[in-house]
Nucleic acid binder design. Structure first.
Lengths: 177, 177
DNA sequence: CGATATTTGATATGGTCCATAACAATTATC
DNA sequence: GATAATTGTTATGGACCATATCAAATATCG
């Protein structure tokens, strides 16, 4: 228990808690029995943005259940495929992942034989990242799942032109905010 | 300074890692010295959405630095103000916050005298949530900061009509995805 | 050249957020 | 009145994020 107050007359409280409790006492049970009013919350960009992002990630995970790929893992595979011969620092930083946190992620992908670290001959400190054949195959299947099950849902919900407009505005926010 | 490839013959392939390592060895140093190619990543809704969300939250925190309010705390205050006389479970659940995790959050707000828990007389299990006078004052200032510094930035970046369209699409995703 | 600084991958660690199980007090149900 | 359900709470573990630190390798500079 934290603060359990047996209500009584407010002794000396100046203006704050005492008055509030009185108001609330008079107000108890006023609310409608059901749904709450979101009010200005539904106009707050951050709120709606976060909710939408959660829903999208949730849907992504469902679509990828058979491949067991998270959004972050998918993004790593995509980026490594598009940029072979890069090291961990480069891949991680362009994804906004800190190098220490990238290690376990790669351990996971490498243990599943989806990608491989290769000691660079030029700079023997760095590990070059490459997709394995299995990694390429899995990524190809992942792309199809995303396109047919995930992004398709978006087109169905917003229409292609709106989807494009949405992506454009989000990119603008992500880059210029 | 984009993509300069020193291409050469691709040799033979057997199975997996062995081949991969050989390919990579031949491929080392191919990448341009500079920026990576995002590729299909910039078309992935989840990716762009997450990045935009991070930027928006980051900006929100900067705008609210003087009031020390996080987006989640702001949303709680907004919802409690709009729906006085509700208990913790109701407020938490409409915000997508699990009851256990809501406790510490309220402890924080209550310790700062921004809101108060009041034992309900109808149901002595539940705590009615109310804003204190200080809470109302802080929330009022917070709203002004958000409107003038945060959301204004959006209008400046996208224009009012686009901002409205963006909110609409995000709401649709958040609710119907 | 050699001493020093920098970079790369890695480990350790702490913080925050999110999710589940369990509990006491209270209320609802039968 | 016995049992089930609800409310706030605690404890706990996992996922994600951030910082400090380290050894190995490289770069820099006297």
């Amino acid at each position: 228990m934290t603060v359990s107050k047996t209500s009584e007359k407010s002794s000396e409280k100046t203006a704050d808690t005492a008055k509030v409790r009185k108001d609330a006492a008079e107000t108890q049970g006023q609310g409608p029995g059901e749904a709450l009013q979101l009010g200005e919350l539904s106009e707050q960009l951050g709120y709606v943005l976060k909710r939408a992002q959660l829903k999208v990630f949730e849907n992504f995970l469902r679509c990828m259940a058979s491949l067991q790929l998270t959004p972050a893992q998918f993004s790593v595979l995509l980026l490594v495929e598009k940029n072979p011969g890069r090291n961990q620092t480069e891949i991680a930083s362009t994804l906004g992942i800190l190098r220490p946190n990238f290690v376990a992620m790669l351990d996971n992908l490498e243990s599943r034989d989806l990608c491989a670290r290769i000691r660079s001959t030029n700079d023997r400190r760095s590990h070059i990242l490459v997709l394995t054949d299995k990694g390429k195959a899995v990524l190809a299947r992942a792309k199809k799942l995303v396109a047919t099950k995930h992004e398709a849902r978006l087109n169905e919900l917003l229409g292609p032109s709106n989807r494009e407009a949405l992506l454009g505005m989000l990119s603008k926010i992500a880059n210029e905010f």
